[in-house]
Design a protein around this nucleic acid. Structure first.
Lengths: 250, 250
DNA sequence: CGCTGTATTGACCTCCTTCAAATGCGGTGG
DNA sequence: CCACCGCATTTGAAGGAGGTCAATACAGCG
């Protein structure tokens, strides 16, 4: 059972398999790509805005996030990167990063040379297709975040984020039955959701008192998944998951 | 002078040239792709959420926008598509559209068969690279919109949108010295900016009284570009334009 | 055991929404 | 040419969601 040995490449393979079937050979290719992981501490920049293109980075364990510091000093978090997510599959074409990426907690990442990516695109059509799929889903998530920010009010917005992370973490095996570890401070949640940390705190209290979720010690316990989804009218379509019944629901 | 004859493909070529030099042959290829334009009226869906993959669509004239209707009936506009912009370079890989695209005014668009896109990726490396560039810039714009929504308050948010559109429209030759046509209602602006149309109206009055812009009869007149940029701390880096001095400033 | 960063709560304020009504305006038919 | 309709715009008054400021409690850690 591979699930027991917990290879570093496991979340990547689980995620990419969602795009379409991969062969055993594809698996070994992906595993070998992940063979030289690197460990970084919490709150370290992985890439900084303005950086020129370099290797592609991939998160294998831990949480990272894209962010931008605006001229007025405010920070907006643009994406949460969980195990199996790529940081920058593309920068090569754009001259420089227009945002930064930082670790939210101690992380395991791999640096993938451009040459390896080239090799994939030329010799591994299923993997290449899966990478394109991953990029498109990232973009779809970004669009949903924009909807979330523009149209939902604070508490549903937060509930929606929690639902999304639940599905994404389940996909890569990082969610339990009753919730998941979410190594973010309330201030970071605030910068994700476009509100103040004070208000995050109040909303968390409301959600707790509503019997939906409890967020304590960097762990999110979901008391009632279905009610949480209903609460924010969560529609997972944008994640483009196959939605095998067993994974998608309760 | 090509600028006089105003070929349909002109905005596309101007835009893609921003990604890197194209040859004369590339130009003819792009022009031939645009040889069968289609005219659609205002407020028509070009693609609808849930649609399966079909041809790729390209806007040659007029404005369109991506949007999503949330379960509560609210609409969020996710992107404004101006001449030279693609609607859906990718859907093929995702099973279905997760959002819709509609025309904001009468538009000229072209339907590009997948086979043509395949041909491009296989035989026209410079164009392929330019298409990738365009996709990445679209994503960068989306990220900036998320910042805008999350961190800036209404009036700067609107100013920022106006600055962005100015640069994007200049790139394709659809902006004048003193502003540009912006065929959107205040309600549409509201759904772009995540506010009510009532508040859009008030913010427009404020910007007018501040001597920054006048929006009347679907035309935006910019009274003072530099002050408008300063007003919202506009930093065009995310558009990844070459920023030839003459185009970028004054 | 004190230090530091995070979480929590209260009081007050403001930006934006909601609701409602009035004004303007392009088109259409008489 | 004018009356009329539908739609977009404009403005006012009142309420609410969320922000700001500041004090307190708490947890991890050397």
């Amino acid at each position: 059972m591979t699930s027991g040995t917990q290879l570093g490449s496991d979340p990547l393979i689980r995620k990419l398999s969602e795009a379409g079937p991969l062969t055993y050979h594809d698996h070994t290719v992906l595993t070998s790509i992940c063979s030289r992981p690197r460990y970084i501490g919490a709150d370290h920049d992985i890439i900084r805005a303005g950086d020129p293109p370099s290797d592609v980075h991939l998160v294998l364990a831990g949480f990272a996030y894209r962010y931008k510091i605006l001229p007025d000093g405010n920070r907006q978090i643009l994406a949460v990167l969980v195990p199996g997510d790529f940081c920058d599959l593309h920068v090569a074409i754009l001259g420089q990063m227009d945002h930064s990426i930082a670790s939210a907690c101690p992380c395991v990442i791999v640096d993938i040379p451009d040459s390896t990516i080239c090799d994939l695109t030329q010799n591994h059509p299923r993997i290449t297709r899966a990478l394109r799929w991953a990029t498109l889903v990232d973009e779809a998530v970004l669009r949903e975040w924009l909807c979330n920010m523009g149209q939902r009010e604070a508490s549903q917005r937060m509930a929606h984020l929690f639902c999304e992370l639940l599905l994404r973490l389940r996909l890569v095996g990082f969610a339990d039955e009753d919730g998941y570890d979410l190594p973010l401070t309330q201030t970071e949640l605030a910068d994700i959701l476009g509100m103040t940390s004070v208000h995050v705190n109040r909303v968390l209290r409301d959600l707790r008192e509503a019997g939906l979720v409890v967020f304590k010690h960097r762990r999110l316990t979901i008391l009632d998944v279905e009610r949480l989804k209903a609460y924010c009218s969560f529609d997972p379509m944008y994640l483009h998951l196959g939605l095998k019944r067993s994974d998608a629901d309760g």
